[in-house]
């Protein structure tokens, strides 16, 4: 029940007598509505984490690479010479 999944904001509209910003968020094919009330600075094109119909966080693009860079950063510990072949392609970094 604590599932929260990231998706991309496709459009934003106003509801509840224009007091509430709602977004259409696409999760790889499925589109669902999510409230943007907790993310005033989220806009079309942003990736957001959605939980029970509410967007709770923007995915931070710079930070998103850290999991892939972490092993390289601590690479001085061991022989990680072939780490590159396991890393996803670097485009978009």
């Amino acid at each position: 029940m604590c599932l929260a999944i990231p998706g991309k904001i496709e459009s934003v509209n106003l509801q509840y007598d224009d007091t509430v910003r709602m977004a259409k968020v696409s999760f790889g094919g499925i589109t669902k509505e999510a409230s943007l009330e907790m993310l005033p600075d989220a806009h079309v094109g942003d990736y957001v984490l959605v939980h029970v119909g509410v967007a709770i966080s923007k995915v931070n693009e710079q930070e998103a690479n850290k999991t892939f860079d972490y092993l390289e950063e601590i690479g001085d510990l061991g022989e990680l010479e072939d780490v590159d072949e396991y890393l996803p392609k670097k485009e978009g970094r």
Binding site: I5, P6, G28, Y47, V59, E61, A64, N65, T67, F68, L71, I74, L77, G78, L80, V83, Y86, L87, P88, G92
Partner: peptide, 24 residues
């Protein structure tokens, strides 16, 4: 942007497991 399936990469998971084994 990397936002979901990239974090399921089995090859990279193995790298992490190897590093865990080396560290413990």
């Amino acid at each position: 942007m990397k936002y979901m399936k990239e974090y399921r990469d089995p090859q990279l998971a193995k790298k992490y497991l190897d590093e865990i084994k080396r560290t413990v």
